[in-house]
Nucleic acid binder design. Structure first.
Lengths: 204, 204, 204, 204
DNA sequence: CATGAATGAGCGTTCATTCAT
DNA sequence: GATGAATGAACGCTCATTCAT
């Protein structure tokens, strides 16, 4: 009859799960999937190895959870930002700005998504790859619309979407790896201009 | 019977070292660093596991060698192609066309460089990263020159170089992962146009 | 709704200790010592894992208790039945009939004693072994008396007692494992005859 | 071209596999399946833990091998001995004498088969159980023939066969556990007589 | 008394590396 | 040189037991 699930206790549990996820992200971002030993993660989370399995069925499930969480967070933010605009062009820009923003704010997320994603067990890898695919397809839809509306010239919109996303991806990777550009947000405008020109939007 | 050598026999006659590298590439491209067990590689190379260590100090050294080899091959080809042109713009285009060409011809190289590269031990990873870095810097030098010559408007050439390389990278990744575009070379022109516009080259 | 208590509720009202023992028997009979996890047992007993340790010092003590309980139940029943007869031969038969009866009624007990008993930690095993030993010795005492009384010819009564008990044991095991004979009690007479003849009692 | 598989080397390998099996039997006989840790077995076999897996795919495969080996050895010996006789009665006796002989010679085999058999993973358990089943059925076939030939009275031969085997089993178990009888072979005759009488063979 | 989250030693298994032949 | 059997540290995971609530 005792051991009531007080608010305090419940919060502790939640925070422990969060701590594991945080530790998992940290280790994943730094060392990749291989180096992400359970003992390592558990230690960083301040728990015993056995405790890990009270919160996650196995290592893969943790990584899956992390991937899913990032996926949701990123797409959620993008949707929110897009909703603020009506013109397709603005929406497209909103997508990219949000991406840059999110990655800029959360280096960990960026590192896992853009640097460590591969090397992870194939199944899990798919989740991470999907984010990228989704971004490309989202961009493609925008481009298709813009072409239809006459705002952009005819073109292979899939290739353009890839190119579009690729420019952002590469710059962010450079920022992560080389520390160049120093500030991610500051180069956002240059990047947008590059792409708008690339897409064939003349008069700006 | 004697003049029809099997591939295996032929490889044995060649340097065993080459056979190991070939096997290493194969395994690395398909399964990633984790799946690249020495036994697996040795078997594919037609040697005993112990023999591997007569040619490479350890697993990491093999990967490093593979990385180095790819690095050399790619940059070598690029230099050769660039030498055929005099104008910087043509040189820049030659760089990219060669990249696409090489990746298109050698999926293995592409898979290792663009898909499996991360997840590999940090130190080794650096070698692979360097190829990308070098490409970006090479592009940047071209851009700097083009800007100086007045062929391109003023811009942050590092960002532009990243963007430039990123477009190619992303399309190649899509080709590897999704099989889209079906033929890599065919979309090359579209990609170049995208980037030339992006860089601000009006006429052409 | 209130007077139709489920089994679970009823057990809770009984001593929890009894519920644990019942759950322990169930799990032990079905899955053996290895599968008998404390969590599993506790769940079946309708308690928390920690509660288990309020009633038993550890897992081994539970098994020991179960063994002891079975031991007492079986020997108690045998003594009761034997008391109903005066002739040693009748007492001997009463022993066996009771055994068969009890095992027939309680498959769980049979499974634990005859099938799962081994594989359990050595010390605990001893308790279970003792039941068998006791049965053999009880039989031997009967046989010794019957030989002394002239009802049976001279013989190594220990061997005879083993043989005697062994016949029952093997048949019961076959019943448990193979389901043959279908009904244990029905073959009791044949078994008794076999042994009486084996012991050298001619005219019945 | 070197590292020839000399006789010496090959013998070492064979002996190592044998050493593992021997160690496995030893541990299995003494401590049961649960206590039979790979580290424990490897140490007893004088090898490193990893070496175990060069000879057996996993722990279960070792136990299966041991079970199979015992099965073959016992049944093989029985068949050999039975072949020496023509009368069914002699064959039946030969079966049992061989069993006693083999168990007497190899306590380890006896312990694993009669004491530790259960508690082992269900699948493996089946192999061990099968030996017993086979013995019972072999005996039953003999009894059926003897009844048909008129050498034994009508009876439930399955029950008789169980009883028959059970007597031997129980005596051997007593010998293993209690050390009584001291010498297994010496009580063989008494046991046979008991069973012949039990089966209803009057004369002799 | 009761709880169930937390613990950590220990399990079976893998694999880069070594070394006697 | 070439071999492949041998090694043992390290992995992911389990479970009997403890203890703060």
């Amino acid at each position: 009859m005792s051991y009531r699930k007080t608010k305090k206790v419940e919060e502790k549990l939640k925070s422990k799960r969060a701590a594991i996820i945080a530790a998992g992200k940290e280790v994943l971002a730094e060392g990749g999937y291989t180096k992400a030993g359970i003992k390592n993660i558990a230690q960083k989370a301040g728990i015993a190895t056995g405790t890990f399995y009270l919160y996650f069925a196995n290592k893969d499930k943790l990584v899956e959870t992390i991937a899913e969480e990032m996926y949701q967070k990123l797409l959620q933010r993008i949707k929110e930002e897009r909703a603020k605009y009506t013109s397709t062009m603005d929406k497209l820009q909103a997508s990219m700005r949000t991406c840059v923003q999110v990655f800029s704010d959360e280096q960990q997320l960026a590192k896992i998504l853009l640097i460590q994603a591969p090397g992870i067990s194939k199944i899990l890898n798919h989740k991470l790859i999907n984010i990228e695919k989704e971004l490309v397809l989202l961009s493609k839809m925008d481009l298709d619309e813009l072409v239809a509306e006459g705002h952009l010239p005819e073109q292979d919109t899939y290739i353009s979407a890839c190119a579009f996303v690729g420019t952002f991806r590469q710059v962010i990777i450079s920022w992560l790896r080389e520390g160049q550009p120093e500030n991610l947000m500051e180069c956002y405008d240059a990047l947008v201009e590059y792409n708008l020109r690339g897409l064939g939007q003349d008069g700006k």
